[in-house]
Simulated assay, not measured.
Amino acid sequence: MEKLRSLRKQRGYTQEYMSKILSTDVSNYCRKESGDVKIFEDEWEKLAKALDVSVEDIKEERGAQIQHNENSTLNDSASINYNQFCNVPNYLLENQQEYINLLKEQIEVLKEENKRLKSGK
C-alpha cells in the first residue's frame, strides 16, 4: 500500500504509532501496510483521520497489490489463497475481524482501568 506508506512517512509517523491507531500490534500493521493483510473499511477511516486525508487519498485496491512471479515460494501462494481453500465466506471473516477489533478496544480500556486502579486514583 504505497500511498499509505508514503503519506505515513511524510507525516513522520512510525508504524508503531499507526498500529496503536488500529489497536493492533506493529507486526500486524506492517502486514497491512505491505498489503499482506486486509485493511477493513473502519480501519481505512481511522488511518485517513490520523493522516488528515480522505480515505480515497490513501486507499488502494488489494487485488492490485498481489503480484505473482516465478520466485514466489509455496508459503507466499498459500497465504494469498488460503481463504479459497477453506471456503469461508468473506462476510464471516469480516464479521470475525470486526469482533476481534472490538475485543482489542475493550482490552485497551480494561488495561487503562487496571492501571488506574493499581495507582489508587
Rank of each mutant, 00 (worst) to 15 (best):
S77I: 13
T73N: 03
N87Y: 01
N71P: 01
L93F: 11
N75A: 14
N69K: 10
N90T: 06
Y99P: 00
N69M: 10
N87K: 01
C86G: 13
Q67P: 01
A64P: 04
N95T: 14
N81W: 04
Q96E: 12
S77P: 00
Q97I: 09
Q96R: 02
V88Q: 00
Q96S: 08
E70Y: 07
S79K: 08
N90D: 15
D76N: 14
N81R: 00
Y91S: 06
N95Q: 11
Q67A: 15
I80P: 00
E98L: 11
I66G: 03
H68Q: 13
A78Q: 08
Y91F: 11
S79D: 15
E94G: 04
N81P: 00
C86F: 06
Y82K: 03
A78Y: 06
Y82M: 02
Y82L: 11
L93W: 04
P89W: 01
D76K: 00
Y82D: 09
I66T: 15
N87Q: 05
Q84P: 02
Q96W: 04
A64C: 08
Q84R: 07
Q65H: 10
D76A: 13
C86R: 02
N90E: 15
N71A: 15
S79P: 03
A64R: 12
N90C: 08
Q67N: 10
Q65P: 01
N71M: 10
E98P: 00
Q84E: 15
L92G: 04
Q84F: 09
V88F: 02
C86V: 13
C86K: 08
P89K: 02
N75M: 10
L74W: 12
D76H: 11
Q97H: 06
T73F: 08
N81G: 02
N95P: 01
N71R: 04
L74D: 13
S79A: 15
N83Q: 13
L74H: 09
H68W: 11
Q84Y: 10
N87M: 03
N83G: 10
V88W: 00
L93N: 03
Q96F: 09
I80N: 00
S77A: 12
Q97L: 07
Q67L: 15
Y82P: 02
Y99C: 07
Y91W: 14
I100Q: 07
Y99L: 12
N69Y: 06
D76Q: 12
L92C: 12
N90H: 08
N81K: 01
H68M: 13
S72W: 13
E94V: 15
I80Q: 02
I80Y: 07
E70H: 06
E94F: 09
N81M: 07
N71Y: 13
E94R: 00
Q97K: 08
Q65M: 12
